[in-house]
């Protein structure tokens, strides 16, 4: 879920935009021209994957996969997620132009954190470590995204406290699903095409 326009205070919007600008700058520095097609096609794949609806009990949830994006792209997750959200702002108005900075930060910062915490374990670990690290990177990616979203709402005003509780509660089942899917996906990638995860 993205925060729509007109909700957050200008201070939060500006802080989010500045932090995102920093992250994108680091990401672009790491992305040489020969890597652009790879990062771009991978971003389109994640965009398509985010359209898949997965049944969770009686309802269904769409995939976010920001943990997996982080594992595969590292700091380049920032530009990758930025272009995806920018397109959504242009074509679907989900999220939006004013919230682009905050929403990119909410999704990409957990991706980079997951990269630093788990990518080494996924690369070098045995099968069980890979599964556990994969699960954690998916779960932590979404969990932190929920947390950052809550923080940006609370930064706007205390009155959002009930919504923040709801947002965080709603993220718990999603964390489980994202964790499972990321774990299976990482194991699959490592077996079929190890160079993608850098193993």
């Amino acid at each position: 879920m993205h925060i729509s326009e007109g909700v957050l205070s200008p201070a939060v919007l500006i802080a989010g935009a500045l932090l995102t600008a920093g992250g994108v700058a680091i990401g672009l520095k790491k992305m040489d021209y020969n890597k652009i097609p790879g990062v771009a096609v991978l971003s389109s794949t994640f965009f398509v994957a985010s359209l898949i609806h997965i049944p969770v009990g009686p309802v269904s949830s769409h995939l976010i996969l920001n943990g997996l994006v982080g594992i595969l792209l590292g700091w380049m997750a920032f530009p990758s997620i930025l272009v995806a959200l920018f397109l959504q702002a242009l074509l679907f108005q989900f999220g939006g132009l004013t919230t682009l900075g905050v929403n990119t930060l909410i999704m990409s910062a957990p991706a980079v954190i997951a990269f630093y915490l788990f990518s080494y374990l996924i690369k070098r670990g045995n099968n069980i470590i890979t599964i556990v690290a994969g699960f954690l990177s998916g779960a932590v990616g979404v969990g932190l995204a929920g947390l950052f979203m809550g923080l940006s709402l609370l930064g706007t005003g205390e009155e959002f406290v009930n919504i923040v509780k709801l947002v965080i509660a709603a993220h718990i089942p999603v964390m489980l699903i994202e964790g499972l899917i990321t774990a299976f996906c990482v194991v699959f990638l490592k077996r079929v095409k190890p160079e993608i995860v850098g193993a």
Partner: peptide, 24 residues
């Protein structure tokens, strides 16, 4: 179900990886 979707996404990622190399 989750495993099937995970493998489907994994396969998409592999295809995108190979395609991007051909594109470049």
């Amino acid at each position: 179900t989750y495993k099937t979707y995970a493998y489907l996404i994994g396969m998409l990622i592999i295809r995108s990886f190979e395609r991007s190399q051909r594109i470049y």
